[in-house]
Design a protein around this nucleic acid. Structure first.
Lengths: 201, 201
DNA sequence: AGATTAACTTTACGGTGTCAAATTTGATCG
DNA sequence: CGATCAAATTTGACACCGTAAAGTTAATCT
């Protein structure tokens, strides 16, 4: 009765396991994420997680869901900083996307990975779309030509920044550090700037 | 003496193991790729691969390298089909990229994954760049403003099609099948068409 | 208080990568 | 030709993994 949920032994094991998983992920990358290690970190036996998640894939899904929350925060923080034009917000959300990827690369890979339930899966709050995608949609909206399908602009922005982030994280552009004013990122931003302008030639 | 390498027992185990790995990958996805299963498919004991690869990560690297060869083939096939303008070639290489991803999603994930040595790693033929990247570079070249860094256009094209392919494979656009004339892909192509035009406003 | 049930532990099993020590095999040399 | 030698492969062992079944504890309910 100390919290909402009646806690028999541990207190809020489900949460603890998810957090342990995220920590493991950040410390040792994808390969360090293990059911047994999560359990050990939470101070329970290795079989305890089975009562809260549908196996390893269930835990991964829960971690991914948590990851999308953090992800959303990165993006909202980026677009809510100061007064920004629509175009600046488009740039900012990309910056937030990349920054999340750089700070939580393991988490990002899990989120879009095998059992990571991508951005469209129904969530705990049973909303249709994930919050992260609604944020993206909102920022893209001003660039959708009237009468056109919003998905077009969303697919353009999303593909571009998603691909860049993954390639950047993977070291494909040479640098893995944070200096975002690099040329490859600016190149992508330049292309972002062409979204929504003169639709037909 | 039947081949270049003196074969003691098996005959070309290294190759057989790589092929087994690729097969496993296509049949059962990432989770099905296992050292022991590769060995079993090649008809050798579970410890045999250790003498040809530096553990699991070494095998993955070798599979990835093979994957990049197949990848290159997809792209060259796409851009060499019929007479094409520079712009059509740019579209075609993207189509080849996506088609490879759709046909070999597991392989693609391995290639750009943890031990997958991305597209820039030095290869067996000790060329500086992977063939795949050289192909991309060649197709991008006509759209690089003179005096500008070619990497800019390459990063734009690559990020866009890489991101789209991964999202598409992941089912984030709803469909996982082959109909490429879908709206999301056409949206990305439309953005591709804006690359290299009017560099400054 | 007694029964019930949820939370967790214990134990066990098959599969995994990796390592060290045999063992086989093909080639080489005297 | 036969002994030798080194490479290729096997065998066996280990620690770790996910999962499942059965057992234990503790809180709740009547």
């Amino acid at each position: 009765m100390t919290t909402a949920k009646t806690r028999h032994h541990h207190g809020d094991l489900k949460r603890a396991l998810i957090q342990a998983g995220i920590d493991l992920l950040e410390e040792g990358g994808l390969e360090a994420l293990t059911l047994r290690k999560c359990a050990a970190r939470a101070g329970v036996s290795h079989a305890a997680p089975a009562h809260h998640f549908a196996g390893m894939s269930g835990l991964i899904s829960a971690i991914a869901e948590e990851g999308f929350d953090i992800f959303s925060k990165y993006m909202t923080d980026a677009i809510e900083a100061g007064e920004q034009t629509d175009r600046e917000r488009l740039r900012s959300i990309c910056r937030g996307y990349l920054q999340f990827g750089l700070s939580h690369s393991g988490l990002l890979k899990v989120m879009f990975g095998e059992h990571g339930l991508g951005i469209h899966a129904p969530r705990k709050d049973n909303r249709e779309e994930a919050e992260a995608y609604l944020i993206l949609r909102g920022v893209c909206a001003p660039f959708v030509p009237e009468g056109e399908d919003p998905h077009i602009v969303e697919a353009q922005v999303w593909s571009l920044i998603h691909g860049f982030t993954l390639l950047y994280i993977g070291g494909e552009f040479g640098c893995t550090s944070m200096p975002i004013e690099d040329s490859p990122f600016e190149a992508v931003m330049a292309l972002i700037d062409r979204i929504g302008t003169q639709a037909k030639t």
